[in-house]
Design a protein around this nucleic acid. Structure first.
Lengths: 230, 230, 230, 230
DNA sequence: AATGAATGAGGGTTCATTCAT
DNA sequence: AATGAATGAACCCTCATTCAT
């Protein structure tokens, strides 16, 4: 048994090494421009070995994407579990998304890239199905939080939870894409700090979704906080 | 003279035909996955002929992108010139962007695609420069409108025009990407109509930027309009 | 009649212009690397027009080579006619060859290039035949001079005129090739002036072919010349 | 270990096979007119395989040239080491060059071809540098021998070793080119045996460079030899 | 399990030549 | 006579994948 287990572990370890190499190369060049040769070299393995662990280049890419999706899900799960109220959950999930964007930019870009319908035609249906299912898990999770926020009276009950989730997400997403591609342009030409703008914009949007009472309570606590600070 | 003119026209016409063919192929497969053979076949011309009109595949791609950028600029220019107030300009430009998204979806996707840093590595610096310069023209135009809106008292003067432009644009953009990729998913699972959500979300955002007076006047006129309709 | 003649002249003139252009391009890049487009552009004519005057790229190349061969023949003919003795003829022809090398280096190289058997396979048999016939005319001429030199007692009658011609020619030729490719190398590393070496070497070789009497007479006249100079 | 060595040998062997195929094709058609397809076919391998062993067509060509240069150098080295006096070295090196010309005619032609300035433009600078450095090694070697011949009193000390080397080499070279291209012409039309002419011409030239004493000693030994023979 | 040699199907681009105008 | 648009056959090189060892 022990031998078999060790072999199992070693195999898993080798798989991870290959994934690390592939991830590095894919991040740099994207799916098409990356070659199996490069990945093999980065993994310090022969090209043939890659095919023992992954059945194609695309399969490798999918495995890397899966890593990223798991990473995002973990961040979200952690945010949710650490928060002490539905409102806090929403905020922390938002922060988690921004963390993902900032600290795993390459995955953020990979996901963006993958969204393009052009891309879909170059990829097997299996891969598409897997990715979409993952994606929907995340959306279901986010919408679930908002729903709880409404049900527990934190957010206005005239709002649709799915719509709120989409608006909050898309608001962040849209600004992140801008930040990823034009951070310097806006800073230099218009003195705009996109990073702060994301925070600000998201908080404003969230407040407009809160019930009257919650908003007032929050304003009060902010005032107190500010007084304490000063 | 007539002969030369006709030849000129025919040549231009042939160029357009090639562009049409290339556009079709690029829309379907993207830059890398499209081949000159496919484009030549779509254009019903020999591959060599393509090179009489465009010096490389990339050049062809750039020409297609340029078409799209001109299209977007024209839509924006038309929107601006037809509007009768800065506020109306902002709204009409927003509508123009949504029109572009709805009626020229493939160009919208192409631009998205082009933004990816991975993509930049596969494209000449010349091409990047041209596209970025176009892009900045558009941003300058949009920010200009908002600035006028503030200067003429329609929008709150405590706001930064560039920040407003970015927020409005990114808000629409984020939702459009969602709509482009998950329209059906949200409609079927949560009954959300993304198209309406874009309108709604944009109008809300815009209102939060207006000065008190303007917002009230608008609310009044809306009431009147609604009464007239009913 | 006058009209036809003028047309004839114009046509000839146009042909010359094309040849000038082709020559320039061929000199720079050689047969294979030169394109009809380049030649057409250099001639400020359309590509199609080239084919009205020459039936192929190769044909054009042949015409340029012919020019060069005529040039060399003219130089030789002039040298021969201006000389006042067989010995002087030989010397002047040698000088003419060196003049050709120095002032029409590109033709010298073209001929060299053309000699390569590899090259022959890429060229029509017609072309080969024409060039070889020209080449033999020149050899016949040179050998003829030497023969006269022997017959009239200037050169040793135990020598074979063809052998002498070959030795003189090849001696110059071998040094010229060296000079063409390694002039700098030998000057910088060994202080050798290849140009002077050609003169010296040729004169030595020629003297070794002279009859005793002629050599003494020449030595005497050189002494006198040197005394006059000093 | 044995396995690795065998693989190493096999790989080397395969490389040689490819080189043999390439050599054959290059000899026939030259660099430009030879295609990788032809070489692959001659090697009975796929085109892709060629690129596992050589990074480009030019690299393959360079490898073939290198073979030739090594061959010539080996011949020269052997000639030098087998000779028992500087004078004998010079003679044996001359013979080695003639052997190279006779037995490796295609390499002789390849080197000629490579000298053409036109050719240089079609070849990478790296390649040029490598070939020139090889070429200079040979020249240095040849000049070195002559220098020793002078220093040890075999050759006249009023002569420059580099000049002598150039004259001897170029004399042979010029006649070889003639022989390569017009052997038949001269034999049939003028009864000249170019092969013997090279020997004779080279020996004459060498004698004119010897010191008086050496020349007399040689003449004497020749007389004796001839008497013994008769 | 791991290797890495071998494959072969393209991919973008070039260019001599033709031909309708 | 002159044009120049169009062709199509190559050419060099790449790379995902396979397979014998």
């Amino acid at each position: 048994m022990g031998i078999q287990e060790r072999k199992e572990r070693e195999k898993e370890h080798r798989r991870e090494e290959i994934l690390n190499a592939a991830q590095k190369v894919f991040f740099e060049k994207g799916l098409q421009a990356s070659t199996m040769d490069e990945i093999a070299e980065a993994a310090e393995l022969s090209k043939g070995t890659l095919y023992l662990y992954f059945k194609s280049k695309e399969d490798l890419y999918l495995a890397v994407m899966t890593r990223g999706m798991e990473l995002l899900q973990d961040l979200f799960d952690k945010a949710i579990s650490e928060a002490d109220s539905p409102l806090d959950q929403i905020r922390k999930v938002g922060q988690a998304y921004r963390t993902f964007f900032n600290e795993h930019r390459n995955f953020f870009r990979m996901f963006n890239f993958f969204q393009h319908p052009q891309f879909h035609k170059q990829v097997s249906e299996d891969m598409m199905a897997i990715c979409q299912s993952r994606n929907q898990e995340i959306w279901d999770k986010v919408i679930g939080i908002i729903k709880r926020g409404i049900d527990q009276g934190f957010l206005r009950n005239d709002l649709d939870p799915a719509e709120c989730a989409i608006m909050l997400w898309s608001n962040s997403y849209g600004l992140m894409v801008r930040m990823d591609t034009q951070l310097e342009y806006f800073r230099e030409n218009f003195g705009v700090d996109l990073e702060k703008l994301i925070d600000k914009s998201n908080e404003l949007l969230l407040q407009s979704m809160m019930t009257e009472g919650v908003r007032e309570k929050m304003a009060l606590s902010n005032t107190l906080n500010n007084e304490q600070r000063s």
